[in-house]
Structure formats: structure tokens, C-alpha cells
């Protein structure tokens, strides 16, 4: 599933191109809004960073099953004998990979646009981003499947996803804030534990319910 999705994306580049363009637009808007004031920037940076990740993620995650819809392959997925949770895990892995690529690009552009040095905080930031991305993608992949066959999916998807993401967003923004201020990871251990717990719960819920969700 991952190989197939990445292969199609490498050839069409539809999602990646759209996400990169969208990320650039976001950065321009943020840059104009915040201006050169370093203090305002430092206070807003963690929230802005995650706002960018979440908005780009919403676009990417919402397209999780577009390939199946456009190619009329949804029924064929259902009919494939075997464990359907493998489909979820494959789609989740593809989403996490795609989101990490876009987030890496966004981080690089952030340092360029806002003239901030993230090098010192990078290892800790990478851990926070990885945990947050997994949480986002785990629920996003599940809800993308849930809304794939309904008419108002573009509206329903973010409306369903964002409230469930509150613990992940809260923990990631708080942890990112502390990490960017130079605090050690031990200082944000409680947020990281919350993130890890949310990831485990979300992934487990996805694996356990995906088959039922697809069948219904």
C-alpha cells in the first residue's frame, strides 16, 4: 500500500505540489502578519509552526483515499481477502511520510522566512514533530476512510478531526514552545508522555476499528 501510494505520488506529484504551494502561501501570510518584531515572533512561532503543519496536514490527509475514489478501487479494497487493518497501517505510513516531507520543508522555509536558528533545538524538535505527526495522521487516516464515501467529506473531515486532535495539538504546541526556548526534553516530559499515549491510543483505535469502518 505504501509503495503503491508513493509510486503514484512520485509520478503525479499532485498532493506534494499542492502542499508545498500551500505551505509557501501560509508562510507569506504569516510573514506579512508578524512583521520583523522578534519578540512577537518568538511568542507566536510554536503556534504558527503547528498551524502550518495542521493546515497542510488537513489537505494531505483529506486526500488519503482520493486515489481509490478516482480509480474506482474502493470496492476492490473491500473485496480483498485478508486483514483490512493492513490497509490502514499502509495508508498511515504513507501519510506520515508525506507529512514529514512537507514539515521538513516548512521548517527549512521557516528558518529562511523568519530568520530563526533552529539548529540547536532540532533533535528535540524532531521528536516532538514526529510524535505530533503520528497522532495527527493516525486519526486523520481513520477519518479520511470514514468520510471517503460521503458527499460532504471536505466539510466533515476537518470538523470531525480537529476536536479529536485537541490533546495532540495542545501537547505539541506546548512542547515546541519549550524546546524553542532552549529547555531540555526532561522539562517537557509530561507533554511528550501525553503525545506518546495519544499516539498509542489513536493508532490502536485505527487498527482495531478500520475493518468495521470499511465494512459499514
Amino acid at each position: 500500500m505504501v509503495r503503491k501510494d508513493l509510486l503514484v505520488e512520485r509520478r503525479s506529484k499532485e498532493t506534494l505540489n499542492a502542499l508545498v504551494f500551500f505551505s509557501l502561501l501560509l508562510l507569506f501570510v504569516f510573514q506579512f502578519t508578524l512583521g520583523p518584531d522578534r519578540e512577537r515572533l518568538a511568542a507566536a512561532l510554536p503556534g504558527i509552526l503547528w498551524l502550518g503543519f495542521v493546515l497542510a496536514g488537513l489537505l494531505g490527509l483529506g486526500r488519503t483515499f482520493v486515489l481509490e475514489r478516482e480509480n474506482d478501487c474502493w470496492d476492490a479494497l473491500l473485496l480483498a481477502p485478508g486483514d483490512k487493518s493492513a490497509i490502514y497501517v499502509g495508508k498511515l505510513a504513507g501519510n506520515v511520510l508525506l507529512m514529514l516531507v512537507v514539515e521538513t520543508l516548512l521548517l527549512v522555509l521557516f528558518t529562511f522566512f523568519f530568520n530563526v536558528d533552529l539548529a540547536g533545538a532540532l533533535p528535540a524538535l524532531a521528536l516532538v514533530v514526529a510524535l505530533g505527526t503520528l497522532g495527527l495522521a493516525a486519526v486523520g487516516t481513520l477519518f479520511a476512510a470514514m468520510t471517503a464515501q460521503v458527499r460532504a467529506r471536505e466539510l466533515l473531515f476537518p470538523v470531525l478531526l480537529l476536536p479529536v486532535q485537541v490533546p495532540v495539538l495542545l501537547a505539541t504546541v506546548k512542547a515546541t514552545e519549550a524546546v524553542l526556548l532552549g529547555e531540555p526534553l526532561s522539562a517537557v516530559a509530561h507533554w511528550l508522555k501525553l503525545l506518546a499515549a495519544a499516539d498509542v491510543v489513536y493508532v490502536a483505535a485505527g487498527v482495531l476499528t478500520f475493518d468495521f469502518l470499511l465494512e459499514s
Binding site: K4, L7, V8, R11, L67, E70, N71, D72, C73, D75
Partner: peptide, 10 residues
């Protein structure tokens, strides 16, 4: 069915 159940970009 009506669809061929194949991915066009593969």
C-alpha cells in the same frame, strides 16, 4: 463492475 479496479498511474 463498471470500474476496472485498476490504478491509472501504475
Amino acid at each position: 463492475a463498471h470500474g476496472a479496479y485498476v490504478y491509472e498511474d501504475l
